[in-house]
Amino acid sequence: MKQAALSHFDLPWLPITALIIFVVCFAAYLYWTFKKDNKANYEQASQIPLEEAKSVSSIKKGHTV
C-alpha cells in the first residue's frame, strides 16, 4: 500500500511548497514570539482578561452614555 501511495504521488511540488511555507512561517513566529525582549509585553498581554474596565456608576436601562 505504501508503494502504491508513493507511485501515485505525482504532484510532489505541491506539498513541498506547503512544507516550505509552513517551516518558514513557523520559524519566523517562533523567533518573534520567543525573543527575550518581548517577554514583558507578553506577560502584560496575558493580563488583559483579568483587567476589567473601571466601573464608575450605573445608569437606568434605556439611557445611553
Binding site: W32, N38, A53, K54, V56, S58, I59, K61, V65
Partner: peptide, 29 residues
Amino acid sequence: KSGPEAVYEAYALDDYSLEAGAAAHRKLE
C-alpha cells in the same frame, strides 16, 4: 436582580498606547 446598567471608563485608543520598539509580531497583534 436586573439592576441598572453599569458604566465603565477607560482611556481612548490614542498614540500614547503605541509601544515604541515593539517586535514585528507584537505590532501585528
